[in-house]
């Protein structure tokens, strides 16, 4: 049974209030495709009955409320997504952060809206591959996501063949993963670097450590302008002095908040808090392991 206009309005208001995700009327197909599995899991015969059930118990912390909110989030992700941000991370942001934090030998990196963890583990692999000196530092990669299921998946570090096919350089697959049945488990040396927890970017934030690098990519696009502004202004408050922020390729702080300066580097860019003052030097740290006979793989940082 298709959604009635009244049910769609109720659902879109509910999702907006609980997650800040904006569902315009043209997204009715998306709502139906995402909520049909929820209805089946709850033993409800159709979406209309699911909405009735939600109307009877509309608390955002109810099980049905959380299941619906989680179903409406987009979990598209893959390893080393877009490549260039990880080049910038390796060549500029991590060296700068290491220089700034040399006295306390501690780094906090936030993967906001981490989905199933590919971004957090891509950061972990970048660190393992290129910054071996950080093995004696306290490095925390903090992954947060609104979805409990995605947070659990991040903690487990188990990926399907389809997922490891996407963006993961084969040399890193053989180095950091083991095959378990038809799935691939990332090694403990990487899962131990990642702390994952549930967090709604549009809700109340838990106490977070001062972040040296923030990745909040391809998530602000789902929010309206006031929500984007509120989130970015809260991001400013958790960033350490001179920390850096990476957004998605189609996202910007322009016309959202004046708190950031955009730093262009090559064909990529990142953001710093205005007046934060970028570190001028980028010391070369770490080694770049090679595979015999692999003539190219520069963008993956393998050679």
């Amino acid at each position: 049974m298709a959604l009635t206009p009244g049910d769609f309005t109720f659902l879109s208001n509910y999702v907006k209030n609980s997650t800040a995700i904006v569902l315009t009327p043209d997204k009715d197909y998306l709502v139906e495709s995402r909520l049909n599995p929820v209805a089946r899991r709850l033993g409800v015969s159709n979406i209309s009955d699911l909405v009735s059930k939600l109307r009877a118990n509309p608390s955002p912390t109810s099980e049905i409320g959380m299941m619906i909110s989680e179903a409406m989030t987009t979990n598209e992700t893959y390893f080393f997504r877009d490549v260039k941000p990880f080049d910038v991370l390796r060549s500029e942001l991590l060296p700068q952060a290491i220089e700034r934090r040399g006295s306390d030998r501690s780094l906090n990196i936030w993967s906001g809206a981490c989905s199933s963890g590919q971004e957090a583990y891509s950061i972990a692999m970048t660190i393992k591959e290129h910054f071996p000196t950080l093995s004696t530092w306290r490095v925390r990669i903090i992954g947060t996501d609104i979805s409990r299921a995605m947070v659990e998946r991040t903690k487990e570090g188990i990926f399907s063949q389809i997922e490891i096919n996407r963006g993961l350089p084969a040399p890193l697959l053989v180095k950091y993963f083991s095959k378990v049945g038809s799935e691939w488990k990332i090694k403990g040396e990487l899962t131990s670097m990642v702390d994952a927890s549930v967090m709604n970017l549009a809700g109340n934030w838990p106490i977070l450590p001062r972040m040296d690098i923030v990745l909040m990519r391809n998530v602000l696009i789902y929010f309206d302008l006031p929500t984007k502004r509120a989130i970015l202004e809260k991001v400013v408050r958790v960033m350490a002095p001179n920390a850096s922020l990476l957004l998605g390729g189609s996202e910007t702080t322009m016309n959202v908040t004046n708190e950031f300066d955009r730093v262009t580097t090559g064909t990529s860019f990142y953001y710093r808090i205005k007046g934060g003052g970028a570190s001028s030097s980028s010391p070369s740290i770490g080694s770049t392991p090679t595979f015999r006979g692999t003539p190219v793989a520069p963008r993956a940082g393998l050679r």
Binding site: F80, R166, P169, A170, F291, V296, R299
Partner: peptide
Amino acid sequence: LEAGANEYVMKPFTKDVIDEKLSLL
């Protein structure tokens, strides 16, 4: 990899998989 392959894709694949692997390279 040891024989000199630069990358490795497991079937089944999609266009995105091929594109993402080539972007890495």
